[in-house]
Computed example of a mutant assay.
Amino acid sequence: MYSTNPYAQAGWSTGSSGSAPLPSIFGALPFSGQSSGPSIHQFEFANPDPDILNCTVIGPQSKTYFRILNNTPSRNFTLVQNRDGASIAVIEWRQSPGAVVEIRDIIRKQLVSTWLPLSEDRKYRFMKARDRTLVWVPQNEHVGLYTYGTSTPELFARLTRTGGKVTLEITSTAIQIGLLECCIVAGVLLQSGRSID
């Protein structure tokens, strides 16, 4: 069953385990650029060669915003570079105790399982960034990034995988508070198909 769920590789259950459903508030929030809320910006992880660990991230106006490069020959490191070619993040793929991530000036070097820890029920992942705690919650064909600890969670971003195409939709609010780089790196980790814990 995990072969049909792209999020199962990130450690989330497929929903068929018989455990309690996610709170309905996460599925009820609208995500559309047609509302009077913040505008939505779309980023596509384009031209994967052979996967998301080697691709270009194309954003608004079809401009290149990031490059994801799996370092050769060891392939133990994945770099995220900005449009100027400067490395802004690095992922080190380790067997034990697990993958390590660092995002320049945002996330100090740490285990991915510390930065994106699974909830106790293994239904969502926390993400700490910019003095905020957020949660990545899988829903149908996407994973949404929500505020955490508020009575009405706000949807900041959404990762969608359709076939081999991965797309990040992110609100202007999330970009303004500096979450774009974190969402790009989280997208790479969650869609890598590799063990991140």
Score class of each variant (00 low, 15 high):
1 M>K: 13
2 Y>L: 12
3 S>F: 11
4 T>H: 13
9 Q>Y: 08
9 Q>C: 07
10 A>I: 07
11 G>E: 06
17 S>G: 15
18 G>T: 04
19 S>R: 13
24 S>R: 15
27 G>N: 04
28 A>W: 02
29 L>G: 10
30 P>V: 05
30 P>S: 02
31 F>R: 02
33 G>V: 10
34 Q>N: 12
40 I>V: 15
43 F>I: 03
49 D>K: 00
53 L>W: 01
54 N>T: 03
55 C>T: 04
60 P>N: 08
63 K>S: 11
64 T>C: 11
64 T>D: 05
67 R>H: 14
77 F>S: 07
79 L>Y: 09
80 V>C: 05
82 N>L: 03
86 A>Y: 14
87 S>Y: 06
89 A>D: 10
93 W>M: 01
96 S>Y: 13
98 G>F: 03
100 V>K: 10
101 V>H: 00
103 I>P: 12
103 I>M: 05
105 D>T: 13
110 Q>D: 13
111 L>Y: 14
116 L>N: 04
119 S>L: 11
125 R>N: 07
126 F>H: 07
128 K>C: 07
134 L>H: 05
134 L>E: 10
135 V>A: 09
135 V>W: 08
137 V>Q: 03
145 L>K: 01
145 L>W: 11
153 P>F: 07
155 L>I: 09
157 A>P: 14
157 A>F: 08
159 L>Y: 10
161 R>Q: 06
161 R>K: 12
162 T>I: 08
163 G>H: 05
164 G>F: 06
166 V>G: 00
170 I>H: 08
174 A>K: 11
176 Q>M: 10
178 G>A: 02
180 L>P: 14
182 C>I: 14
182 C>P: 12
191 Q>E: 08
196 I>G: 01
